[in-house]
Design a protein around this nucleic acid. Structure first.
Lengths: 183, 183
DNA sequence: ACTTGCATGTAAGTGGTTACATGATTGG
DNA sequence: CCAATCATGTAACCACTTACATGCAAGT
């Protein structure tokens, strides 16, 4: 999944600026697909316009910089639907936390506990975001399906982490007895 | 997580060649961490050796090309443990299947069904791999924790997909009534 | 005869990110 | 007064991947 396809996916259902596309890709449920920065989105949109898959119009705003609103063209819609017919790329799941967990026995218990708590907080934040996305307007049935899937998995991750994190902490090196504790 | 750290993580517990590291990163449970190709692993190992974090010895083999077995040094172990103390990068989850699912309403039902079945097969394959990894020798308790977490989540993904894929297919465009069906 | 597995390595290409440049407005 | 938000865009950089080069042995 590349930034080009991400742009077409977002523009398929609504107009948007490069700025908005970036926000959606980093925050909203679009982060399931690609996470992109300005440095890749703006050139991608320019290229898509060159290729006739999107058009743009400049909208001046009061007190804010003018924005360039992109819309998808019929050719763009067709190109996107074509892309959806292609064989799917593999799913990617990368967890620095799991690498950390694997080596818990090398690390002090207080660090392991802190990282596990951070991870739990991150997962809970994900759950909040998904629930929020579910309540936004303009959700299609496909969105609802994706959200339900994401929520089920994320809630299990939360539960597993919550109920098993102490097992992980138990593997860690016992905390150093603090010298001069009474001083 | 970069290829450099992946190499140190694998070499922490056993010697390995570049060839083996690649296999572990693409197949085994190491794919949770980074997936790397030869083009990144070999240069990374050479660099690590330059930096004194690993050493290598060449082992000639009968009927097979000689292999270069890398071992971690004390400096390497220290560098890896230091890296584990760093704040953790964010988890990455990217699912081309979920993007596809979101737009199921634009696609023919037979395509949606085919892709959902492929996805289910992929998830089942993941489960098989995780169970296999669990049975390998030399597993530490940290490994066991990571495997249990991965298995719990992957099994839920399988169940959810299995029980809800027909809902997704139902969103798709009804299959074209085949012309001349009787001819 | 061809493919697969073993095994190392390099060069070219790619798809991004980071940091910068610019600038007005609002809120702490 | 500084930081953040809105908003666009570029240039330099980076970490990878892909494809190639090499070569032998075993299985199909």
């Amino acid at each position: 999944m590349n930034v080009r396809t991400l742009c077409l996916a977002i523009l398929y259902e609504r107009e948007a600026t490069g700025y908005e596309i970036r926000r959606m890709s980093v925050e909203g449920e679009c982060s399931y697909f690609v996470e992109a920065s300005y440095g890749s989105i703006y050139p991608a949109l320019a290229k898509l316009e060159d290729d006739g898959l999107v058009t743009s119009r400049v909208e001046p705003q009061e007190g804010k910089p003018a924005k360039k609103v992109y819309s998808i063209t019929e050719a763009g819609r067709a190109a996107f639907v074509d892309a959806l017919h292609e064989p799917l790329d593999e799913e990617v799941f990368r967890s620095p936390f799991l690498l950390f967990a694997r080596f818990a026995h090398l690390l002090p218990a207080d660090l392991v506990e802190a990282r596990a708590k951070e991870q739990l907080e991150r997962v809970r934040e994900d759950i909040r975001k998904i629930k929020q996305a579910a309540e936004e307007e303009g959700r299609t049935e496909g969105d609802a399906w994706v959200i339900a899937y994401g929520l089920a998995i994320t809630e299990l991750a939360e539960e597993h982490l919550r109920t098993h994190m102490h097992d992980l902490v138990a593997l860690a090196r016992p905390e150093q007895i603090k010298k001069n504790a009474a001083e």
